[in-house]
Write a protein that binds this DNA or RNA. Structure first.
Length: 199
DNA sequence: CATGGGATTGACT
DNA sequence: GTCAATCCCATGC
């Protein structure tokens, strides 16, 4: 994927990343859930401006913003928009494709649909660590690549972001409609659907 | 230097 | 449904 892919409005990038493939350290998965964050709204770390922590967010697009959440989990974001704008897409869930046994080992867990069904889970499954903050998503070691053919036009549901208290009303979460690999089913879709792509 | 707050998860009632 | 774990970072004294 080219760097220009990320140099667009963060909502476009969040939507376009659905169906793309993330790979790292012998494992990969299709992105089935994302959220957008932008320095104009208070849920975004970059809202407070440039600090040591938000440096990466204001840098050039197509790089990883990795930070520690609740002292425990590393969360992976893709920096978006031109340099000077603090914006990123949080990768919230993957459908595992390859290296599933490596994921199982790193997660100490068997069930494939629980391996990457949350932002902290997928970084653990892929072995992504805090030290990879600022690394290039185009050349690796964390790689994000274009959609496989069968993921060309996945049905996408838009709803509100999860786990935040500020700007919680914004509909900036994107997920593959009906996927069993997402972190939480969107509100109003409590009935399971079976029309989503399956591994 | 001390403090408080999380873009979460898994275990438990 | 509730709740604790755990640590980095921004802020304030």
């Amino acid at each position: 994927m080219r760097r220009s892919f990320y140099a667009r409005p963060v909502l476009d990038v969040a939507r376009a990343l659905i169906g793309c493939v993330v790979s790292h350290d012998g494992a990969s998965g299709v992105i089935v859930e994302t959220e957008a964050y932008h320095d104009s709204e208070p849920a975004c770390h970059a809202f407070i401006g440039r600090t040591g922590r938000t440096h990466t967010l204001f840098g050039p697009p197509g790089y990883a913003y990795v930070y520690r959440s609740y002292g425990i989990h590393a969360l992976l974001n893709a920096v978006a928009e031109p340099p000077g704008v603090g914006a990123a897409v949080l990768i919230r869930a993957l459908e595992p494709i390859s290296g599933i046994d490596a994921m199982r080992a790193r997660r100490s867990l068997e069930r494939v649909d629980s391996l990457c069904s949350g932002p902290g889970k997928l970084t653990q499954a892929l072995g992504i660590e805090l030290s990879e903050n600022g690394s290039d998503l185009i050349h690796g070691p964390i790689l994000i690549e274009a959609r496989p053919r069968r993921w060309r036009d996945p049905p996408v549901t838009v709803d509100r972001r999860i786990g935040i208290t500020k700007a919680a009303e914004l509909p900036w979460r994107f997920s593959v409609t009906g996927s069993r690999f997402v972190s939480r089913r969107p509100a109003g879709l409590s009935r399971a659907r079976s029309d989503a792509p399956v591994a």
